[in-house]
Every structure is written in C-alpha cells, then in structure tokens.
Amino acid sequence: MRYLTCVGVLFLVLVMGAFATAQADGRSVYAKCIGCHGVDGSKAALGASPPVKGQSADELEKKMHGYVDGSYGGSKKVIMVNMLKKLSPEEIREVAEYMAEF
C-alpha cells in the first residue's frame, strides 16, 4: 500500500511539473510579443489587429498557423510571419494556451 501511494504521488508530481513547464514556455515565448500585444494581450497590435485577449487557444493557434502558411493576416502580416516562423508547432500551441488565459 505504501508503495502504491509513493508511485501515485510521484506520478502526480511529474504531471504537475510537465504542466508548469508548458505554461512557463508559453510565457517566455509571449515575452517577445508584449511590445505589440501588451502584457495582458489587450492592446491592438500596431493599431491594426484585434486584441488577443479573450480569444480561445484554438482560435489563436489557428490564426498563428494561418500567418505561417499564408492563409491569414492583413497588410502587416509580414511582421507576424517573421515572428512565428521561428517557432515550432509545439511553441505555437504553448503560447496560444498561455494567451488564452488572459
């Protein structure tokens, strides 16, 4: 019984650590976005885009992939393309999840 309790606690710690790491990665990626989107995502980037605050992770991730593949974005999309093409799909997902918490 003691063994099972120890294994259960260890599993819980590992799962919580993985979640915290994903959040930290999303936060560190977003640090590069603060200048245009604001600390809490409420700023309209370059006065041209809607704030990211209040959007779901799925919406944000879809839009970011759209910038990368050319299927989304307005006249100033080259700025976003240059930022996002440096990120892996996992980083895009993590930053989308982080921004969805605003």
Rank of each mutant, 00 (worst) to 15 (best):
M1Y: 11
Y3G: 01
L4C: 12
T5G: 14
T5F: 08
T5I: 15
C6W: 14
G8W: 15
V9K: 09
L10S: 11
F11Q: 07
L14Y: 13
L14N: 08
V15D: 05
M16P: 03
M16W: 15
G17C: 08
G17W: 14
G17I: 07
A18M: 10
F19I: 15
A20K: 11
A20P: 02
A20Y: 09
T21P: 00
T21Q: 09
T21R: 11
A22S: 11
A22T: 13
Q23M: 10
Q23E: 12
Q23K: 09
Q23W: 15
D25T: 14
G26V: 09
G26S: 04
R27H: 12
S28G: 01
V29Q: 05
V29L: 06
Y30A: 14
A31K: 13
K32M: 07
K32E: 11
K32D: 11
C33N: 09
C33T: 09
I34Q: 12
G35L: 06
G35I: 01
C36A: 04
H37F: 04
H37C: 08
G38H: 05
G38Q: 11
V39M: 12
V39L: 13
D40R: 06
D40M: 04
D40C: 01
S42D: 15
S42I: 02
K43W: 05
A45F: 08
A45H: 08
L46K: 09
G47R: 09
G47A: 10
G47D: 12
S49W: 10
P50F: 15
P51W: 08
P51I: 03
P51K: 06
V52N: 15
K53F: 02
G54A: 06
Q55I: 04
S56R: 01
S56W: 03
S56F: 06
D58P: 00
D58F: 01
D58H: 01
D58R: 05
E59Q: 04
E59D: 04
K62Y: 03
K63R: 13
K63H: 09
M64Y: 04
M64C: 08
M64Q: 07
H65D: 12
H65R: 13
G66M: 05
G66K: 07
Y67N: 02
Y67T: 00
V68R: 14
D69S: 02
G70Q: 05
G70H: 05
S71M: 01
Y72Q: 01
Y72W: 12
G73P: 00
G74R: 02
G74A: 12
S75K: 11
S75D: 09
K76Y: 14
K76W: 12
K77S: 13
I79R: 02
I79Q: 01
M80P: 09
M80H: 05
N82A: 01
M83K: 06
L84I: 07
K85R: 10
K86F: 02
K86H: 04
L87M: 06
L87Q: 10
L87F: 03
P89N: 11
E90D: 08
E91I: 02
R93G: 03
E94W: 03
E94S: 06
A96W: 06
A96I: 13
E97I: 06
Y98E: 13
Y98D: 10
E101C: 00
F102H: 11
F102K: 08
F102C: 01
